[in-house]
């Protein structure tokens, strides 16, 4: 059975090809990091996997079905996506925002069910944002705001979570907070999480599987200890680096680096 995969994906913006005939498979139950230089197609790939970007060729397979065979709401029940720089009206409260995550389960004419309230509450607790439930999102700090949006995607109760650079614009402690949250969601709620990350050391430390993109194709994929090598860094990022082992986290660590 194919859990989640892209087959022969090609995506164009106008005449410009972003992703070229890509084949990629995502192992169930893991945290999968998408890494690669700017313009390598990470966000575009994520957009295609969530059904947002139109495919020129190929198909996205989700649980043995093509993605577009699902209705929009059914797809949202299986697959939640948090794009880069999410925006919502600043005056709505965290609770209302998280409630949007229940849209895929709600029918027209009906009001919110008890199940929706429970799911919203649970999502806020899991994302550790429940103390701000009645705060307008404009009043939140960057890290709190990001956790509120993550809570919204958790309310979708989907097995797969796509996160596009959820740590951008956050300082180091808040970056770590989000990444640890991602790991908890994976280990305890058993979600498969595909995450675009810029910081390579964080990718090596928090992901079970790394997908390295280079000019719209996949250059490397595998466990961090296998693919996070000086060879890969030179090949994909054009940096000369020394990779050692992080003695505490037991993962590869980029030590010294410079452009080639």
């Amino acid at each position: 059975m194919t859990f989640f995969a892209g087959q022969n994906l090609t995506i164009n913006y106008g005449t410009h090809t972003i992703i070229k005939q890509m084949n990629v498979t995502f192992p169930k139950g893991e945290v999968i990091g998408l890494i690669g230089p700017n313009g390598s197609g990470k966000s575009t790939l994520l957009g295609a996997l969530s059904g947002f970007h139109k495919l020129k060729t190929g198909r996205v397979i989700l649980e043995d079905h093509e993605l577009h065979q699902f209705s929009a709401k059914k797809r949202a029940q299986l697959l939640a996506c948090l794009p880069q720089n999410p925006q919502a009206p600043g005056d709505i409260t965290v609770r209302d925002l998280v409630g949007y995550g229940r849209y895929a389960y709600q029918h027209r004419w009906t009001t919110d069910h008890e199940a929706d309230h429970k799911a919203v509450q649970r999502a806020m607790v899991n994302a550790n944002i429940q103390e701000f439930a009645d705060t307008p999102i404009a009043d939140l700090s960057g890290g709190q705001r990001q956790r509120a949006f993550i809570a919204m995607t958790l309310a979708q109760d989907s097995e797969i979570l796509l996160l596009d650079e959820p740590t951008t614009f956050l300082d180091l402690p808040h970056q770590l907070e989000i990444l640890k949250l991602v790991r908890v969601l994976n280990r305890e709620l058993h979600k498969t999480i595909i995450i675009v990350l810029h910081d390579l050391n964080q990718a090596a430390r928090f992901c079970d599987n790394l997908v390295c993109l280079k000019q719209g194709t996949i250059a490397y994929q595998g466990r961090p200890q296998d693919v996070f090598t000086a060879q890969m860094l030179a090949d994909v990022f054009h940096v000369r680096a020394k990779v050692t082992m992080d003695p505490k986290a037991h993962c590869p660590l980029l030590l010294t680096y410079d452009t080639i």
Partner: peptide
């Protein structure tokens, strides 16, 4: 409810299941 959801940016509301 549908109109409320498309008050978010496009990719976000698409991800929530909005047409």
């Amino acid at each position: 409810r549908d109109i409320t959801i498309i008050g978010l940016n496009d990719q976000l509301s698409q991800g929530l299941g909005s047409r």
